[in-house]
């Protein structure tokens, strides 16, 4: 039996069964006068009685899945070589054709819109982060109610517009949403307490936000490099090659995304 250390329900909900984590920034232990003993099992199944200040499990200093790391780094080599050879062969072909170059793509507008979209997404993300920090518990409830009401609105809109399929799907979604909401409503305080705890941790480690933005800039840079550097090569690539390019594009994005995830999860 192996479990990750968990927050016992008694701690999350408070001694009286209600959530009594009063301050959003406070460490949960502070609300229990630093006397709380958390019982949990470590990864090897040993029962732990952990108190504030106890160290987390020590990780082995050993490289894992080395093959995939090497493969990831090596996959850039054929990518760059193909782009280089492709562009040089294009130049040779153009020279043979008396200097008639391939129709060039005006990337200016695309670049502009890409920058606008990136800035808007950064702004939206910051706003949603701030919103979640300020109104965590209310947001959970509102979101659940809103999703149910939205299904009802779709059903009503379907009836009014005479679209039978839309109204049936909306009504079914509304019914399922109602059942789900009634089933999980009593668990919302637990979910809200979890979210509040998480946000308290983020507030205590604001460097996480910087790391997230840093990796977002890297992802943006990769997208730019991909299209500006390899765009012309992609135009003439066959479908198998195009598929490999796609895999490469998504692979790098996923690696960046999961790296942020592991940084957040790690110790």
């Amino acid at each position: 039996m192996s479990t990750i250390p968990i927050v016992p329900a008694a701690v999350a909900e408070g001694p009286s069964g209600k959530n009594n984590i009063s301050s959003a920034n406070a460490h949960p232990y502070q609300n229990y006068n630093d006397t709380t003993v958390v019982e949990a099992e470590d990864f090897h199944g040993n029962l732990l009685q952990q108190q504030p200040g106890m160290q987390h499990e020590k990780q082995p200093n050993q490289l894992k899945d080395v093959f995939w790391a090497i493969l990831f780094l090596l996959h850039f080599i054929p990518l760059i070589l193909y782009a280089l050879f492709s562009s040089s062969s294009d130049e040779g072909q153009n020279n043979n054709n008396g200097g008639n170059s391939l129709p060039s793509i005006n990337v200016g507008p695309h670049l502009f819109w890409l920058s606008v979209v990136a800035l808007v997404s950064v702004g939206l993300s910051s706003l949603s982060l701030e919103g979640m920090m300020r109104h965590a518990d209310v947001l959970v409830k509102i979101s659940l109610v809103f999703s149910v009401l939205f299904s009802a609105l779709i059903a009503v809109f379907g009836i009014l517009s005479g679209n039978l399929l839309m109204s049936i799907l909306g009504a079914a979604s509304f019914a399922i949403g109602c059942c789900y909401a009634s089933m999980v409503w009593h668990r919302l305080p637990f979910a809200a307490a979890n979210l509040r705890t998480a946000l308290s941790a983020v507030r205590s480690n604001m460097g996480l936000v910087v790391v997230a933005y840093l990796f977002m800039v890297l992802a943006f840079g990769w997208s730019l490099l991909f299209f500006l550097g390899f765009g012309n090569s992609m135009q003439q690539a066959s479908y198998p090659v195009l598929f490999c390019w796609l895999v490469s594009y998504y692979w790098v994005h996923q690696v960046l995304q999961y790296t942020v995830h592991v940084v957040c999860a790690g110790k």
């Binding site: 200040g53 910051s126 983020v202 996480l208 992802a219 995304q257 999860a265 110790k267």
Partner: peptide, 25 residues
């Protein structure tokens, strides 16, 4: 992707940095 980068920072935290923050604040 950019939206999920930010959400990735927030959402896995109950089991993530909180692990350290919880046991070794």
């Amino acid at each position: 992707d950019s939206r999920s980068h930010i959400h990735n920072t927030i959402l896995p935290c109950p089991s993530g940095v909180v692990g350290t923050w919880w046991f070794a604040p």
